[in-house]
Nucleic acid binder design. Sequence first.
RNA 1: CGGGGCGUAGCGCAGUCUGGUAGCGCACCGGUUUUGGGAACCGGUGGUCGUUGGUUCGAAUCCAAUCGCCCCGACCA
Length: 450
Amino acid sequence: MRLSEFFLPVLRETPNEAQIASHRFMLRAGMIRQSSAGIYSWLPLGYRVLKKIEAIVRDEQNRAGAHEVLMPTIQPAELWRESGRYDDYGKEMLRIKDRHGREMLYGPTNEEQITEIFRAAAKSYRDVPKLLYHIQWKFRDEVRPRFGIMRGREFLMKDCYSFDLDFESSKRAYNKMFVAYLKTFERMGLKAIPMAADTGPIGGDLSHEFIILADTGESEVFCHRDLMQMAVPQGVDYRADLQPIVDEWTSVYAAADEMHDPATCPVAEADLVSQRGIEVGHIFHFGSKYSKPMGLSVTGPDGVDTDVIMGSYGVGVSRLVGGIIEASHDDDGIIWPDSVAPFHVGIVNLKAGDADCDSMCADLEQKFRNAGLDVLVDDTGERAGAKFATMDLIGLPWQVVVGPRGLKDGQVEVKRRSEGERMALTPNAALDRVVSGTMLDPATTGLFPG
RNA sequence: CGGGGCGUAGCGCAGUCUGGUAGCGCACCGGUUUUGGGAACCGGUGGUCGUUGGUUCGAAUCCAAUCGCCCCGACCA
């Protein structure tokens, strides 16, 4: 991709409304633009990241055995009357009327919708267990949207729903999602802490929040230091018993500040870690909360009808874009993890128009692309300083600087964004260094061909 | 929903107190010299000062209403 042909409206100065790092950098790097309070447009750079995060979330859901559907953003009020939430949900729900005066709403979540779909299809105990998810825009009319994309009113969420015959089976679904979440966040370069949580308005009695650690996070979490070291399981067989993994992760103390009481905390002070974090996922087991009022039951092997046991499992996909930036940036800009970087490498042509520089850049671009990397070539006429500043701002993991000075000695320069120093290498060595140093994620490579 | 703040050019701001018809930096356009960490100079383009109403000979400035946005708190993926 050539920068001269791309749409990357970077801002040199920070818009007045942006207070936190992720919001500032997302605006400055031309990733998003605000439409109204808590509602944003995604520009090409931001959209690439959003799509890559979505792809990783999707991949882990699929691995865990969930099946993707796509439900509408607009739902009929009757559905929500069935569950009793039409009145309970309050002003956060955006209610609208269609031309016939029929009451509709812009979905803040989809329990009712999925329950309706499933109850129409599932009649027998043989129809469960099932896991269905979708990745769809939600709208919650927050009183106070803030922090840019982190707490918008419109946001992209992955929500998965489980359907089981009994608690034991439902617990297995819960465990699948628990483990899938550990893996999802790790793939994005994040340290996520699962924490026992209040069940909130969705209700139920088994619930965990997943908090990613970031110094600028909005809530404080306390946990045993062992949790920081704990390794995310690799090569998980989702058909196997996952209870030991969940037990391992939940046996260690972790609590949000409202749940944490220093007086009763079982962890010795020396072992207690206090960190700021951002909630990016939440899983609930809620039993028959929706199936019972909405009449979702199946006939058991004994011929007796029984309420289907459900759970729901959310990931804030758009919030993760901000969350990753909060967890990974410096004064100059964003530092993307390889898996979600909008481009893996940025080639800076210091003298666009110079035949040698141009052809070296074109050659490198082609070779990087052949290796499966996404490449952005700055072929604009900007001055060197401005190009470097832009590259640092948009945070591509690698920068390759091609200039007449280096080319004279047959060299280009390679900079790892996270480390900062530049090293002079031959073009082939640079290629090697970058390609071998990039962890390509199977779910996000090739997502943006060309 | 309680408390606070702000709306003046694409972005950052001054001007408002004390009314006299809008300015600075960056960006943008043209030119010259430059060119390896956000160049310098010269010359330009761009704003019904959020909106509506009022006071006044005259309103960015005073008054009223209204809309929008941000921050702190309570609430949330």
